[in-house]
């Protein structure tokens, strides 16, 4: 699952995480204590513990841990109860409600979903029975509410696998059972993450290589680096096949002077820009 964009998977329980850790060959970062965190090739998995507070904290934690990069892919994977959907069936959320606050969210899905979708109702306490025909869990609303502070809604998805229903109550769920039903949907999870990462790549374009070289060659202030990023982006549009000849720029120049030279070139290119 190679992508230059991060994908963050969050589960509440270790048994939910287990098959994902194996599938993606994630390695535990032992130095990280508050939440067990696993990582490989821009995929992270965090086990947050049960409940909204734990999940919200886990989301914020992993976001900061990877440097606060915006608009990455987020996926909450977990088990949930439903009145009558078969145990082992998987759904992504098309609507998430918080039972306490009655807030609602509607995760946008600008892709062909790899499985059916359902409403998720997030509870603070386990419920006896299944009053309505929706999925019941304990983390999705917090996951979605907090993750969408860091990323756009299209990249934040919840996937739940039915672990219990009227005929098979929650008391009978074992850790092993939870791992088994998650494992059965690795292909679906893979497909969903892939779609999320492809979308994330669209809105997170690569920085051209000469940007890093320029930062290493000359000293730029923080603001000048922001300007340089902007210039690099414009240059990529105006002269994609003709990067600046940095070796011709005086090494003795400061950041401001280098920006001036680059801006002058851009100005002349703007008037000559033809579509295509």
């Amino acid at each position: 699952m190679n992508s230059r964009v991060y994908a963050h998977i969050l589960t509440a329980l270790p048994c939910e995480a287990k098959p994902l850790i194996a599938h993606y060959r994630l390695r535990r970062r032992m130095s990280i204590v508050p939440f067990p965190t696993y990582e490989k090739d821009n995929v992270t998995l965090t086990v947050t513990g049960i409940g909204k507070v734990s999940m919200a904290a886990g989301v914020a934690f992993i976001h900061q841990l990877v440097g606060g990069i915006p608009n990455t892919a987020w996926l909450n994977v977990g088990i949930a109860g439903h009145q009558n959907h078969p145990v082992g069936s998987a759904f992504i959320a098309h609507k998430i409600t918080d039972a306490d606050t009655e807030k609602c969210w509607y995760p946008p899905r600008p892709f062909i979903a790899p499985c059916k979708s359902e409403v998720i109702n997030t509870l603070s306490m386990p419920l006896a029975g299944y009053p309505e025909t929706c999925l019941y869990d304990m983390e999705a609303s917090a996951f979605y509410e907090i993750a969408t502070r860091f990323s756009t809604g299209e990249l934040v998805q919840c996937l739940k696998i039915v672990s219990d229903n009227t005929a098979n109550p929650a008391e009978n769920i074992s850790s092993r059972h939870a791992s088994t039903i998650v494992e059965a949907h690795l292909q679906t999870i893979d497909a969903l993450l892939h779609k999320q990462q492809r979308l994330a790549e669209i809105i997170n374009p690569d920085q051209p290589g000469w940007y890093s070289l320029a930062c290493k060659t000359w000293r730029f202030t923080h603001n000048e680096k922001i300007q340089l990023k902007e210039i690099a982006r414009r240059w990529q549009v105006l002269s994609p096949n003709d990067p600046p000849k940095l070796d011709e720029f005086p090494k003795s120049h400061n950041g401001k002077q280098i920006l001036g030279l680059l801006k002058t070139h851009i100005k002349t290119q703007q008037m000559n820009l033809s579509f295509g």
Binding site: Y106, P108, P110, F111, T152, G153, E154, L155, V156, I203
Partner: peptide, 11 residues
């Protein structure tokens, strides 16, 4: 809601 991306949704 603010956390939406016009470009992605246009797909």
């Amino acid at each position: 809601p603010k956390s939406q991306n016009f470009r992605l949704q246009k797909r």
